[in-house]
C-alpha cells in the first residue's frame, strides 16, 4: 500500500521540465507535419504517375508501420548506416513523417471534394494550374479537412509521449523517472494523466473556437 508522504515541491521542477519538452516536441512537429501532409496530398493528387505512386507508398508505409518502431528505426537503426540524429531530432522527424502521412489523407479527401468547376473557373480567369491550386483549391481543401487535421493534432499531443522510449525526457518520461525514484507510480501517473487530459481538452476547445472563427457559410464540413 502507498504510505509515502508526498512533497509535491520536489516533483514539480522535473515535471515542469518534462512538460516543456512535451510542448517543444508538439510545437516543432505540428507545423512540419502539416506541411508534409500538404506536400504528400498534392503529390498524390496532382503528381505524375510516378510521384503519385511514391506518395501513395509513403502513406501506406507510415500508416502501416507503428510509430514507436519508426522512432526506433530513426534513433537506433539509422546510426548503423552512418546517419545519426539526437534523440529529440529523431522524435521530431518520426512525428513529422507519421503525422504527415495521416494529415495527407484528410487533405487529399478535401482536395477531391472540391468540385472540378472551381479549377475550371480559375483557369478561365487566366490562372495557371499552380496558381489555381494555391489560391483556389488548397484554401478550400484545407478548410474541409480541418476536422480531420485537428484530430491528428490531438493524436500528436498524445503520441508525443512515445519520445520517452527513445530517451527524450518529456512529461511521461519525467513522471516515470520520479515515480520510480519515490515509488509513487499511482499518484504520479494520475498527475500525468490530468496533465494530458487538460492539454487535450484545452487544445480541443481552442481548435473548436478557431474552426468557428474561420468558418465560412456553405462549408458544412467545418
Amino acid at each position: 500500500m502507498i504510505d509515502l508522504q508526498f512533497d509535491f515541491a520536489i516533483l514539480l521542477p522535473p515535471l515542469y521540465q518534462g512538460a516543456l519538452m512535451t510542448f517543444a516536441l508538439i510545437l516543432v512537429s505540428a507545423p512540419f507535419g502539416f506541411l508534409n501532409g500538404i506536400g504528400i496530398a498534392l503529390g498524390r493528387t496532382y503528381g505524375n504517375w510516378l510521384v503519385s505512386r511514391l506518395c501513395h507508398g509513403y502513406v501506406l508505409f507510415f500508416k502501416g508501420c507503428p510509430l514507436l518502431l519508426l522512432l526506433f528505426i530513426i534513433y537506433f537503426g539509422l546510426p548503423s548506416l552512418g546517419i545519426t540524429f539526437t534523440a529529440f531530432t529523431s522524435a521530431v522527424i518520426g512525428f513529422i513523417l507519421c503525422n504527415g502521412a495521416y494529415n495527407s489523407e484528410y487533405i487529399r479527401g478535401g482536395i477531391q471534394s472540391v468540385s472540378s468547376g472551381q479549377m475550371t473557373a480559375a483557369l478561365s480567369l487566366g490562372m495557371s494550374r499552380v496558381q489555381a491550386i494555391r489560391s483556389i483549391i488548397l484554401p478550400q481543401a484545407l478548410r474541409k479537412s480541418l476536422p480531420g487535421l485537428s484530430n491528428e493534432f490531438i493524436y500528436l499531443i498524445k503520441y508525443s509521449s512515445l519520445a520517452y522510449m527513445i530517451t527524450v525526457v518529456e512529461i511521461t518520461g519525467a513522471g516515470n523517472i520520479i515515480a520510480a525514484k519515490y515509488f509513487a507510480f499511482f499518484e504520479i501517473f494520475i498527475l500525468i494523466g490530468i496533465f494530458y487530459l487538460a492539454l487535450v481538452t484545452v487544445a480541443g476547445r481552442v481548435i473548436a473556437s478557431i474552426e468557428k472563427k474561420i468558418a465560412i457559410p456553405g462549408f458544412g464540413g467545418v
Binding site: 468540385s115 468547376g117 473557373a121 465560412i216 456553405g218 462549408f219
Partner: peptide, 28 residues
C-alpha cells in the same frame, strides 16, 4: 493563361470560389 485573361467565361453553375466573399471572388 494570357489568352484566357482576355476571354472571360460565365458558367451554367456559376463556379464561384466558395471560400471567398463576393468581392474576394472578383479580386483574386
Amino acid at each position: 493563361n494570357h489568352f484566357r485573361q482576355k476571354i472571360g467565361m460565365v458558367f451554367q453553375n456559376f463556379n464561384l470560389f466558395d471560400h471567398l466573399t463576393a468581392i474576394g471572388n472578383v479580386e483574386i
